[in-house]
């Protein structure tokens, strides 16, 4: 009986979280087009529905009914599973994101689908696996552009995962846990009554490094070397069309939302309200607000910065970002040691 309720609550939470994430993905594409348009003195999509609000649905339907082309000479099996390998890690990470304060549903704990004690590492493990989808997709397409995109992506994701990992170790030292629920709970409350106890105020360098690494990790401009349109047509998904292309697209935006959620949880206090008198607003609204702010930042830098060269990207990752995060880690460790004694 107990197990039955457990399964039901888990499925309920999974459904709610997954639908929210997929809706966010859909409207993220809309928001991206709109915000970019405003930044470029345009209006963006206006035709489908009022102010183009139904545009994501139209796009989804279009992709669903498009012809599915497998190029000649492609490895059919790997070509088919690569988008799936790409998509699953992007969605699976949301299982450990605490979306609101803990509550009880049918006698089961809610608020997060699975409170793993290694939740953070779990997300990182699957982010690394997402790179396989990109590389294999690029390789199986039997196309030079796709192969180059895949190789670039592999090098980029591995390089920036290191910097990303180093940047969050400081947060782990501060909160003393790998569980995202504990990390969020450690950030409730305020200092002096008006500064929220968020890690971003203790780890500003780490936050900056994390955001830069996250942009590179999700292959977004200005670090979108794997799909650089002007050089590689579309990079690793050049040969993809229809639903398979949609899967890659979903994975890219899902990853963006995931790293934004993670940044909110690690550095911006997750579902905690910034000040006590604002806590009447529910936790998931705060998390959504913080995530959307970061997503807006993603679009913002896309609208501002030109694409960097590949050697610049690698140089920045290895020679700037990793040393900076290492020094930050050293300083944080010293600080935590002194504070605890």
């Amino acid at each position: 009986m107990e197990i039955g309720w457990m399964v039901i609550t888990a499925l309920l939470q999974i459904t709610v979280v997954l639908i929210t994430v997929l809706l966010t993905v859909a409207y993220m594409t809309y928001a991206e087009r709109k915000v970019l348009s405003f930044m470029q003195d345009r209006l963006g999509p206006m035709e489908v529905g009022p102010y183009g609000l139904l545009q994501p649905i139209a796009d989804g339907l279009k992709l669903f009914f498009k012809e599915d082309i497998i190029p000649a000479g492609a490895n059919k099996i790997i070509f088919s599973i690569a988008p799936i390998i790409c998509l699953i890690p992007a969605l699976i990470g949301f299982a450990v994101i605490p979306y609101t304060e803990g509550f009880t549903l049918f006698g089961m704990q809610g608020g997060v689908i699975a409170d793993l004690n290694v939740g953070l590492l779990y997300i990182f493990a699957f982010a690394g696996v997402g790179a396989y989808g990109v590389i294999l997709g690029g390789w199986a397409s039997n196309s030079k552009y796709a192969l180059l995109g895949g190789l670039r992506s592999a090098a980029q994701i591995i390089s920036y995962e290191l910097a990303m990992g180093f940047s969050i170790v400081g947060v782990l030292l501060l909160s003393g846990s790998l569980s995202l629920v504990s990390i969020t709970q450690a950030q409730s409350g305020t200092w002096f009554g008006f500064i929220p106890q968020w890690n971003v105020f203790l780890q500003p360098v780490a936050f900056g490094a994390y955001v830069i690494a996250a942009v590179a990790e999700t292959n977004r401009l200005p670090f979108d070397m794997p799909e650089a349109e002007s050089e590689l047509v579309a990079g690793f998904f050049t040969e993809y069309s229809g639903m398979r292309f949609a899967f890659f697209f979903l994975a890219e935006y899902g990853n963006m939302i995931l790293v934004s959620c993670l940044a909110s949880v690690l550095f911006l206090g997750g579902y905690n309200a910034p000040l006590p008198f604002l806590s009447f607003i529910p936790g998931f609204a705060w998390l959504a607000l913080k995530t959307w702010a970061l997503l807006f930042f993603f679009i913002w830098i896309r609208g501002t910065f030109p694409r960097v060269r590949f050697d610049q990207l690698m140089k920045f990752g290895w020679k700037v970002l990793i040393p900076v995060t290492l020094v930050n880690l050293l300083v944080t460790a010293l600080g935590v040691y002194i504070y605890n004694n």
Partner: peptide, 21 residues
């Protein structure tokens, strides 16, 4: 310099659009 660029792009958002529907 990067922050300056970001600021300019942000301010651009509040300018009227110059395209035709």
């Amino acid at each position: 310099e990067l922050l300056m660029g970001l600021k300019i792009v942000f301010m651009q958002m509040f300018k009227p659009y110059c395209t035709l529907q």
